[in-house]
Structure formats: C-alpha cells, structure tokens
C-alpha cells in the first residue's frame, strides 16, 4: 500500500516537474529580452535540481543528492555571472 502511494506520488512529481521544466524552456525560447532568458535558466536549474532529488528518492540512492547539490551550486554561480554580464557587459572587471 505505502509502496503504491509513494510510487504514485514520485511519478506524479516527476511528471509535473518535467512539465514545469518544459514551461521554463518555452520562456527561454520566447523571452523578449536577455534578462527573461537568464531568469528562466535560473528557474530551470532549480527545477532540474528538484527532479534529481525526486529521482534519488525513487531509486533509493545517495548519488542523486550530490548531483542535485552540484546543480544548485552551478546554477547560483552561472546566474550571478550572467546577471553581472547584463549589468556591465563583462563578468570579471
């Protein structure tokens, strides 16, 4: 019973999160300006991190946790770098 509940919940979460990733991808393609695309990329990083966490729960391994942590750190650094680029036109002054 609990296995069925958890399988359903995790499958639902994966489906919904992948739908959210598709929606963020649409905003990357459509985004009228550069800052929209950067913001959509940041949202996509967070959604992918959540997908990794849910997949790790489903498979019962710890490896996805480390991948999720790396994705979160990379997302922060890349978003900051892109925001700096939008600000000044260069990343490192």
């Amino acid at each position: 019973m609990s296995a069925a509940i958890l399988t359903f919940a995790l499958g639902y979460a994966q489906l919904v999160l992948s739908l959210a990733a598709c929606v963020a991808g649409v905003r990357i393609l459509r985004g009228p300006r550069a800052q929209d695309r950067v913001l959509a990329l940041d949202a996509l990083y967070i959604i992918v991190m959540l997908v990794f966490l849910v997949t790790g729960m489903q498979l019962g391994t710890m490896f996805f946790f480390e991948a999720a942590m790396i994705v979160a750190a990379m997302g922060f650094v890349s978003s900051i770098a892109l925001a700096k680029f939008l600000f000044r036109g260069e990343v490192i002054e």
Binding site: I5, Q14, L17, A20, R27, L39
Partner: peptide, 23 residues
C-alpha cells in the same frame, strides 16, 4: 508514506504553478 507523498506532491505542484505564472 502519506506525509512524504503529500510533501512531494505539494512541492511539485507549487513548482509547476510558479512555472506557469512565469509563462
């Protein structure tokens, strides 16, 4: 299992709502 399922589904649904609002 019930609270875990509830929390995971809540998190996924809120993320989708945020993404739709973003669009």
């Amino acid at each position: 299992a019930l609270p875990i399922a509830f929390l995971v589904m809540l998190g996924a649904t809120l993320t989708l709502i945020g993404a739709i609002g973003f669009l």
